[in-house]
Simulated scan of single mutants.
Amino acid sequence: MPARSDELAGLPPAVIATAENDPLRDQGDRYARKLADAGVPVQHLPVKGAIHGFLSFTGSVQLSRDILNQLSDAVATAFN
């Protein structure tokens, strides 16, 4: 698992979204920092007001749709 590895240099660019009200948020935040510290291009999107699984609500919650669009744009940029 890359997040537990001591050696992260050389990994491909990453896009990480973390929800403000998620018990796993700190792990995602920490992983984004570790990647950046290792020189890996990383875009971290902390999502204020979001809960774990917020991307499951793209059909009914505008915040979820907005973040999904941001994630899509970031991935497209990483591959260009």
Rank of each mutant, 00 (worst) to 15 (best):
H52M: 08
M1I: 13
P46I: 11
P23V: 07
A32R: 00
F79V: 11
I16V: 15
A74D: 10
R33C: 04
V15S: 07
A3I: 09
D22N: 04
L35T: 07
F57T: 10
I16H: 07
R33L: 10
H44K: 06
H44E: 10
G49N: 02
L11W: 09
D73Q: 13
T18I: 05
D26E: 14
F54D: 00
A32M: 02
L35N: 04
Q62D: 14
S60M: 09
E20H: 10
A38M: 01
I67S: 06
R25P: 01
F54R: 00
A9G: 08
T18K: 01
L45V: 01
G28A: 12
V40S: 07
H52E: 08
T58V: 15
E20M: 13
P13N: 01
Q70S: 13
H44V: 04
P41I: 10
A78S: 09
S5T: 11
G49A: 03
V75Y: 00
S72E: 09
P13M: 01
A14Q: 02
I67T: 11
F57L: 15
Q27D: 07
P12C: 12
P41K: 09
P23R: 07
Q70T: 12
P41S: 10
K34I: 04
L45W: 00
L45K: 01
P46A: 14
A36V: 00
G39M: 09
V40E: 11
T18R: 02
N80I: 14
G28I: 11
G49S: 04
D6P: 01
V75A: 02
Q62E: 14
S5I: 09
P41Q: 11
A78V: 06
D29A: 03
G53L: 06
G28E: 12
S60Q: 11
R25H: 07
D22I: 01
L63C: 06
F79W: 11
V40W: 06
N80E: 13
D37I: 06
A38T: 00
F54T: 00
D22S: 05
A32Y: 02
P12S: 14
A9V: 12
D66S: 14
E20F: 13
D6G: 11
L11N: 12
L35H: 11
A32S: 03
E20V: 06
P13A: 02
H52Y: 12
G53Q: 03
V75N: 02
G10H: 02
A74M: 11
A50M: 12
A78T: 05
L8R: 08
R30H: 09
R30A: 15
A74T: 10
A14K: 00
D66M: 07
E20S: 12
I51P: 08
F57Y: 10
A74H: 14
R65P: 05
R33A: 07
K34S: 08
R4W: 05
Q27W: 02
A17T: 14
Y31Q: 01
Q27S: 08
V75E: 02
Q70L: 11
D73K: 15
L68I: 10
I67H: 06
A32W: 00
N80F: 14
L35M: 13
L68P: 13
